[in-house]
Simulated scan of single mutants.
Amino acid sequence: MLALHGGPKVRETPFPRWPQYDDTERLALIRALDQGDWSRHGGKEVQAFEREFAEHHQAPAALAVTNGSHALELALELVGIEPGDEVVVPAYTFVATSTAVQRRGGVPVPVDIDPGTFCLDPAALDAAVTGRTRAVIPVHIGGHVADMDAITAWAKTRGIAVVQDAAQAHGATWRGRGLGTLGSIATFSFQSSKVLTAGEGGALLLPDQDTYDSAWIRHNCGRTRDLNLVTASSNFRISEFTAAVLRAQLARLPEQNARRAARHAELTAALGEIPGVRLQARDERCTATPHYMTTFVLDQDVLGGVDRDTVALALLMEGIPAFGTYPALHRTEAFWTGRTGGARVEELAERCPHAERVGRDGVMIPHQALLGGRQEIDDIAQAVAKVLAGLPRTGTVPA
């Protein structure tokens, strides 16, 4: 019997907690405190973190900012997005991707995703481009790098800017190269659930010194290093304390990503044996990923209309951390509170069937579940099999 219906749980023991920390973070905070200057203007932690983060991703430069949303907004400002400009975004992503466009006064234009990788589908770009298209935001969803070869080539021939939303892709590589080598701005989040976290924070990887200098001024209230106010902007600076924690967390990232990669291979092998489970695929050119989420979609042709939200709840009751995927952007109320260019829900749903399916039938297992051992993997697979076998089918397969 399912735990949802009063039966015994598959797992009683908690999964590894997140974030993970020890005296390294404590000493880092004391180090920042003892500087006596807690601002990036006088301290050393922010500059050191930016240098280390850029090196980790093979980028010419990095700029630390307040959070991932601000990183996206600043990136869009840097590539020149103005009110009324259109920016192509994947229809399946966390809503912050489109919200950043709307907060610049731009119009996000959702396009469908690749049915395997769940990342923006380059084949959908031509139908979305207009004379007002100024940028495209590929999202490296779950840490899986989007098809940067095709997207970059498509954008270059049209004079369209590329901004990578890498909020979930810390340490990911494409063809063995860091995300800072791909010739475009990449933005990151350090929010509490991310594989690199200080509770909050964000960063941009910048492709050249001129872009870094412009970003630095704009994140500093529009003020140059010699205190001249040269443009209207805002304060996106982070504190020395945030940077000190991030430096400690960054030092852990390679080992944690390697551990997640090993466990993820075991988990996907086990889940792949369960009827009705369709796993997120990985482009072979994505040579490393932090596995921010292990995502699978319920194949309703096999499962006969089982309800995704009930599956996620039943897994939680079995002691497994599991959540429903993000809804497609056009299914999110927040999307419709900004500029949308006159699109309608039904139109976007028809144009983006793969995003519809992943948003409706997807289940996510968070990355900290991969920081344990083989027992954690076996428990997840056992619980998924138990839940899918034990829940009733509606008999109605969604279109």
Rank of each mutant, 00 (worst) to 15 (best):
W154K: 01
G142V: 03
V136I: 15
D147I: 01
L179T: 15
S192R: 14
A128W: 06
L179P: 03
M148F: 09
V163G: 01
R103M: 10
T133E: 01
H144E: 09
V145I: 04
R134E: 04
I113E: 08
G131N: 05
H140S: 03
G183K: 12
V107G: 05
V111Y: 13
A124F: 03
H170I: 01
A153M: 02
W174R: 10
L182P: 03
A155N: 02
A155P: 00
V109W: 10
G105W: 05
L182W: 12
A128L: 12
V163K: 00
D126I: 02
K156E: 15
K194D: 12
G142T: 09
L120R: 03
A161E: 07
V162M: 06
G116W: 06
A155Q: 02
T152C: 06
F118A: 02
S193A: 14
A146P: 00
L182M: 15
W174L: 13
W154H: 01
R132C: 10
G178C: 12
R134Q: 06
A146G: 05
K156S: 13
V111I: 15
P122M: 04
V111D: 12
R175M: 04
H140E: 01
R177D: 09
P115Q: 04
A146D: 05
M148D: 09
V163L: 07
R158C: 01
F188T: 09
G159E: 12
T181K: 01
T133N: 03
S189T: 13
G106Q: 02
V195R: 04
A167W: 01
A146I: 06
P108F: 06
A128K: 10
I141G: 08
D112I: 06
K156G: 08
G180H: 11
L120P: 00
T117K: 01
R104I: 08
A169P: 13
A153Q: 12
S184G: 04
Q168A: 15
A161C: 07
T187M: 00
K194A: 06
V109N: 12
D149S: 07
D147A: 11
A135C: 08
G176P: 14
G183T: 11
V109L: 03
T133P: 05
A166I: 09
L179S: 05
F188P: 15
Q191W: 09
P108Q: 02
D147N: 15
R177N: 13
V195I: 11
T187Y: 01
T133Q: 09
T173K: 15
G106D: 10
G143K: 10
I137E: 02
G171A: 08
G106N: 11
T157V: 07
G105P: 10
C119D: 02
A123S: 10
Q168H: 15
V162A: 07
A127F: 07
P138T: 08
G142S: 12
V111F: 15
G105Y: 11
V162L: 10
T181C: 09
L125W: 07
G171V: 07
I160L: 09
T181H: 07
A166S: 15
D114R: 00
W154E: 01
W174P: 15
G159S: 05
D147M: 04
A127R: 14
A155I: 00
A172V: 07
V129L: 01
T157A: 13
V129Q: 14
Q164H: 14
L120N: 02
V136K: 00
A150F: 00
M148T: 12
